[in-house]
Design a protein around this nucleic acid. Structure first.
Lengths: 233, 233
DNA sequence: GTCTATAACATGATAGAC
DNA sequence: GTCTATCATGTTATAGAC
């Protein structure tokens, strides 16, 4: 009997919903990092977050939902960083480097998690796949981030969309390389970024040169089909 | 519990090992085609092949092992077809088309299976991944097949290795496109092949042109890194 | 709407007997 | 080589407390 009349509904659950939800998420991410995605069970997560298995599933309807949440958060961070730092960078190559390296920096600490992410992103049967119609908005946001690096006088406007898609595709290649990169300090991934940073301005110059004008249309068209291929629309 | 289980003396071996093994494999492939990879369970396979679950696992230690077996068989077929037909094709573009389209023709009937294959091929944690050290011989064989299409006077010998790797990478892109291709008669996949067939000779011409000689070394170097990226060695 | 507790299910995978 | 348990885990379901 509560002596105080009508005291609030007592005993209450340990936390309100948001706290539980974010605790579950934090525990999951930590366990994925510590033990790897596969070796972490939903039962582990629930136990360590001190919630029931049912509640964990209530907030994250599948193990992959954790990965998806992580992915979205990182891309938002990437957009913020790029939006903040890009205006201070004049040279095209540096802009491309910034956009690639900042993304890499955001992910570098979570390689194990990225492995799980890759699996989801490349699974054609998953609605969370990088090429699935359901993830189109995310893909568009990503391409827009890369396009902002190409907002530069050296890049003809007519080429920007096509090149942005190409740059996004190159960045997917970097992520793939990273996932396999066993070299110290991710040296090989850094090399892949270097290669892109060096190649892109050359490509832009080639495409802009009057000498190659006859080829330009064809190449742009081919990059457009690359966009269609990867955009899977 | 099956009532006749205790009936004793081990029912003798119904067949010799090979017959059971190939029966299991055949049943698995048929079920994958009929119901899709995910909806086919090992228990289905075992039941339809009239063997125990344990025996199915004895021969195919995981579901993915079926996919691996399929992949190896198809690549051998591809090597055979290309080896047989390529000598009669003089034009470079036609050679490239042959090698791409023959591969596609081999896979076209098994798109559902290819989806499962893609998942294995792109899973960084799988030793069966397309980029894993364990599958290096397979990858080398694949690159060699594509290299044979580039055995042609138009292609400078110094470029052939790099371009073979690039062509192989492009072919991986075609497979990825195919997996997502919902268009009638796989039209979009055909277009991707067309784009590659048109682009490659142009690229070769560009790389060979004396005007671009200063760029050539850099581009070859970048293609080499692409090879390293994808070869993951 | 937040949370617990517990059971149950389907299925991929393994162990060990014969 | 072959089988019969048995396990581990993702996932669903139920019944209820506050």
């Amino acid at each position: 009997m509560t002596p105080r009349a009508r005291a609030r509904p007592v005993a209450r659950h340990r936390d309100d919903g948001l706290a539980a939800r974010s605790r579950i998420q934090a525990v999951a991410l930590r366990l994925f990092r510590d033990k790897g995605f596969d070796r972490t069970t939903m039962r582990d997560v629930a136990r360590r977050a001190k919630v029931s298995l049912g509640l964990a599933y209530h907030y994250f309807p599948s193990k992959e939902a954790f990965v998806q949440a992580y992915y979205v958060a990182r891309q938002d961070e990437h957009a913020a960083v790029v939006g903040r730092e890009l205006p201070g960078v004049p040279a095209l190559a540096d802009r491309i480097r910034l956009v690639l390296e900042s993304k890499q920096a955001l992910l570098a600490g979570d390689r194990d998690l990225l492995v799980a992410l890759t699996r989801v992103l490349l699974d054609p049967t998953s609605p969370l796949s990088a090429f699935a119609p359901e993830t189109r908005p995310l893909r568009d946001q990503a391409v827009a981030i890369f396009r902002s690096a190409l907002d530069h006088p050296d890049v003809p406007e007519s080429l920007r969309d096509a090149l942005a898609t190409l740059l996004w595709a190159a960045h997917m290649g970097v992520m793939l390389r990273f996932v396999y990169d066993e070299s110290p300090a991710h040296r090989e991934t850094g090399r892949a970024i270097d290669a892109i940073v060096e190649t892109f301005p050359t490509l832009v110059a080639l495409l802009s040169s009057p000498m190659l004008q006859p080829l330009q249309e064809g190449l742009v068209e081919r990059m457009r089909s690359l966009g269609l291929v990867l955009g899977a629309d």
